[in-house]
């Protein structure tokens, strides 16, 4: 796992067909899962350049082989306090396709990567209507692994362009 995070840019092979494969990772001791289909690569937490006058869930931008890619602070997006950086922090690059604006790349900061798990469909339950630590619409389902439940994130919602680009009001309130 250590090697996984330290390799500069480890591409995750997209798997064929209907994939119940999820990348699991930790955010402040909580385990989350993200479908691996939109994930392009996991890279070491390198130099993130802050962007002024944006809400706190935008960490900044990174240089991803010549492309400038914004990085989202997931805890801040959930409304939690940001987690401190540690040596296992890394950035998961996700490519989302949008209907009108083509594919866009986004990075999300996570505390540490765990592993890629196969979660069969019958082990995925629907999101609880309340009681979860994140917004219900961010959850695509609850994956049952062993005796634990993993929150499976809905990348489209968590990284919704429309919501992320609502920078204006926040920027206005900034000092």
């Amino acid at each position: 796992m250590g090697e996984l995070a330290s390799s500069r840019a480890l591409s995750v092979e997209p798997s064929q067909g209907e994939c119940g494969q999820y990348l699991t990772f930790y955010l402040q001791d909580e385990m989350f899962g993200l479908n691996i289909t939109p994930i392009r690569e996991i890279s070491e937490y390198g130099k993130v350049t802050p962007v002024p006058m944006v809400p706190n869930y935008v960490r900044g931008v990174v240089n991803l082989r010549g492309n400038v890619v914004p990085v989202i602070d997931l805890p801040a997006r959930f409304g939690w306090p940001s987690s401190p950086l540690n040596k296992r922090s890394c950035i998961v690059i996700v490519e989302l396709s949008t209907a009108d604006r083509g594919a866009i790349e986004l990075g999300i900061v996570i505390d540490s990567v765990s592993e890629v798990l196969d979660i069969p469909a019958e082990n995925i339950g629907s999101a609880p209507s309340f009681g979860a630590k994140v917004r219900t619409d961010f959850i695509s389902g609850m994956g049952k692994v062993g005796d634990d439940f993993i929150v499976l994130l809905n990348a489209e919602k968590v990284l919704s362009l429309d919501e992320l680009s609502q920078l204006e009001q926040v920027a206005k309130t900034a000092p």
């Binding site: 006058m53 010549g66 400038v68 609502q166």
Partner: peptide, 13 residues
């Protein structure tokens, strides 16, 4: 390098 779509409404940059 154009900024990502999510910065579309950011003014000043």
């Amino acid at each position: 390098k154009p900024l990502s779509q999510i910065f579309a409404r950011l003014s000043g940059i």
